[in-house]
């Protein structure tokens, strides 16, 4: 395959730590506000290397979540390109983008976004349930469940498997959300204000979890936050100011 289509990335290169896994170039995005339109992103460039932990800092309303959504294939830019692993997300069909979100990306949101009807284990398994057909899920069920339980145990939730999200505390919910995001072994983890809805103590615990993921498993992470102190924990901090990204030394 690599001989006939030189443009696609050879599998061996994926593990090259110096190679960029995600590259955003000239991202533009504007929103309609009544009659006028506000340009939030005015050409953002970002290159993310394998295993890197990058924080994007900015005031609320600066467009940092929008940038994260565009890089995570949840939203589309008005201009610019996003390349994931050498392929342009903007050129993909919606089904292909869904597949990338399912298998390559994981998301953590400020408001956890768990499904209220599903219990902790089922919420964690959601990505796997979406990936597999009914038959495929049935035949891999033991392994998938073991993985979900393993993740939840890591995050100290092994006694909560059958609970519904409404029965959990904020910190517990966010840990379930992290477990869900990691279920399919994503290449990139996107975190959108992961501690924004938590008190300082719980927020600290969640940050520890994220940091540990990066440190011990080499997880590539893009985190968005308005908290300068939290941003300092990343390898690299970028500030989104007036629609452009600036590197902080």
């Amino acid at each position: 395959m690599s001989r006939t289509t030189p443009k696609t990335t050879p599998a061996g290169e994926a593990s090259d730590p110096s190679r960029p896994i995600l590259r955003a170039r000239g991202i533009q995005r504007s929103f309609k506000m009544g009659d006028s339109s506000v340009q939030v992103l005015k050409g953002c460039n970002l290159t993310l290397k394998q295993g890197e932990f990058v924080a994007i800092e900015g005031r609320s309303g600066s467009g940092k979540s929008t940038l994260l959504h565009i890089m995570g294939a949840l939203d589309e830019a008005d201009g610019g390109t996003v390349e994931f692993d050498g392929e342009e997300l903007t050129q993909m069909s919606s089904v292909q983008r869904s597949r990338v979100r399912n298998k390559q990306f994981g998301f953590i949101f400020q408001f956890y976004h768990l499904l209220p009807e599903l219990n902790v284990l089922e919420n964690t398994l959601l990505a796997a349930m979406i990936e597999y057909s009914w038959l495929g899920f049935r035949s891999n069920r033991k392994a998938l469940q073991a993985r979900a339980v393993d993740l939840l145990t890591q995050f100290g939730l092994s006694h909560r498997l059958k609970h519904r999200p409404s029965q959990l505390s904020g910190g517990e919910r966010q840990r379930v959300a992290i477990a869900r995001a990691l279920m399919n072994n994503p290449r990139v983890l996107f975190a959108d204000e992961p501690t924004g809805n938590l008190d300082v103590e719980t927020g600290r615990q969640i940050m520890d979890v994220i940091e540990k993921l990066h440190r011990e498993s080499g997880q590539t992470i893009v985190m968005v936050t308005h908290d300068r102190a939290l941003a300092r924990e990343a390898d690299r901090v970028l500030v989104l100011k007036e629609g452009k990204l600036e590197q902080v030394e």
Binding site: S94, S98, R101, F109, H113, L115, I130, R180
Partner: peptide, 11 residues
């Protein structure tokens, strides 16, 4: 949420 985890529109 379901879409963010990778569900397609037809799904």
């Amino acid at each position: 949420i379901i879409k963010s985890v990778g569900a397609t529109s037809s799904g």
